[in-house]
Design a protein around this nucleic acid. Structure first.
Lengths: 132, 132
DNA sequence: CTGCGACTTGAAGCGCGGTTCAAGTCAAGG
DNA sequence: CCTTGACTTGAACCGCGCTTCAAGTCGCAG
């Protein structure tokens, strides 16, 4: 099965990540090479799925350290599961916030207020009136 | 009306941002002080609304430079309006992505796969199969 | 053997979004 | 007057997420 392994260059091309980024992720414990072809890192094909998940989570605003914790998670690890559940709540909150922002942008595109920022609808859509 | 202006300290307290951040935002063109009390920056109360909007957008993943462009936008500025519309699409895409991530997390919390990352449902929920 | 080209390493550098610092300035109070 | 305390400044520093660089190593073709 050793021939099934992918060279770092191939993984880079297929994942859209730079080789330097892959090595960086390895240092951070996000991925690991299964072996080497000479000096070249050789990755299992599943690593591509893992990288897809990593970039998705990263794009979603997770830090690489957080992602590393997920990546190493095993089902037995109730502790990590709880962190996942907490993250789910975080993501939900983020979605709600982004939804408000989207609505604000949608309104702003057709609004006539001069310093757009002071449009009452725009402000209301953001829903933030802490106590200022 | 000069007495209606707020000291930087007050703005910092009410907005939840550090004074250093407010000065940083000023350098970046996001906000500006209306005047000074001695050396102290004095802000108009509306600045608090502006800051609420700024932090919202920043938390949503916009760069300060992007936000600065919005902040300076005027209704006549069709160019900026288009960028807002484009941003709205971006935000929508982000919401969709986060929704997928949330569903993945939700599933992961109860999944039995050992390296969680390799759970087929988890992967499918991420919906990323570019061509790898 | 001698290139060549794609990889290897560690270390340095970068852009972002700030914070922290030293040194200075101001208004108010004693 | 002198102190106090909150501000002022520019410059340095920080953590993150990488990229870039110099120098070295490998497999393969000719």
């Amino acid at each position: 099965m050793a021939e099934a392994l992918l060279d770092i260059g191939e993984v880079a091309r297929r994942s859209g990540l730079a080789p330097s980024a892959l090595r960086f992720y390895e240092r951070k414990g996000l991925i690991e090479a299964e072996g080497r072809n000479g000096l070249r890192r050789a990755y299992r094909p599943e690593t591509l799925d893992l990288l897809a998940m990593i970039t998705c989570a990263r794009d979603a605003g997770f830090t690489l350290a957080e992602i590393a914790a997920f990546v190493r998670a095993r089902p037995a690890d109730a502790h990590v599961r709880e962190r996942m559940a907490a993250k789910e709540r975080e993501v939900s909150a983020r979605i709600a916030q982004l939804t408000r922002l989207r609505d604000s942008l949608r309104h702003a595109a057709g609004c006539e207020h001069d310093p757009l920022v002071e449009c009452p609808d725009f402000k209301r859509a953001l829903g933030r009136v802490p106590r200022g």
